[in-house]
């Protein structure tokens, strides 16, 4: 139902994924499959996951994000998380959660830069 509010668009060779403000579990679960399918279809090389609309991240949501990052990694892509609000950062840390190896960036622009720079480093040698 509210699953439709999860938006995935391709910007050049990067998938821009935007989470809705208060996603239900079905939307959060759908995140993994939809992102991975979009990766495959569009041969994107990275994912920017924007959670700036999200005002609370619980342990379930955090686990899904960390898992999605690992899965995208298995497919050869990188994920950069962006838009974590100060209150969410404080709460997540107090909860004792980490987001695994997920890279984070302060803004969508920075997230794109990280993905761009990262691929240059890989291609150079």
């Amino acid at each position: 139902m509210s699953e439709e509010r999860l938006s995935i668009i391709k910007v050049r060779d990067i998938l821009m994924v935007t989470m809705p403000a208060d996603p239900d579990d079905a939307t959060v679960s759908a995140l993994q499959e939809r992102v991975l399918l979009a990766m495959e279809r569009s041969t994107a090389r990275g994912v920017v996951l924007d959670v700036s609309a999200v005002d609370s991240l619980d342990s379930f949501f955090a686990r899904m994000i960390a898992e999605t990052t690992r899965m995208v990694g298995l497919m050869g892509g990188r994920t950069v998380l962006t838009g974590i609000r100060p209150s969410v950062a404080i709460t997540l840390t107090q909860l004792g959660l980490t987001l695994g190896k997920t890279r984070t960036a302060l803004s969508v622009d920075r997230a794109f830069e990280i993905l761009r720079d990262g691929s240059q480093q890989v291609q150079k040698p």
Partner: peptide
């Protein structure tokens, strides 16, 4: 969220309460 905001909790405390409630409800 509504209850905590109406009671005048700051945004960080509102987020803490919502998150704790979400964990227990789940």
């Amino acid at each position: 969220r509504e209850a905590a905001t109406r009671l005048g909790f700051g945004i960080t405390d509102v987020t803490r309460i919502i998150t704790a409630a979400s964990e227990l409800a789940r």
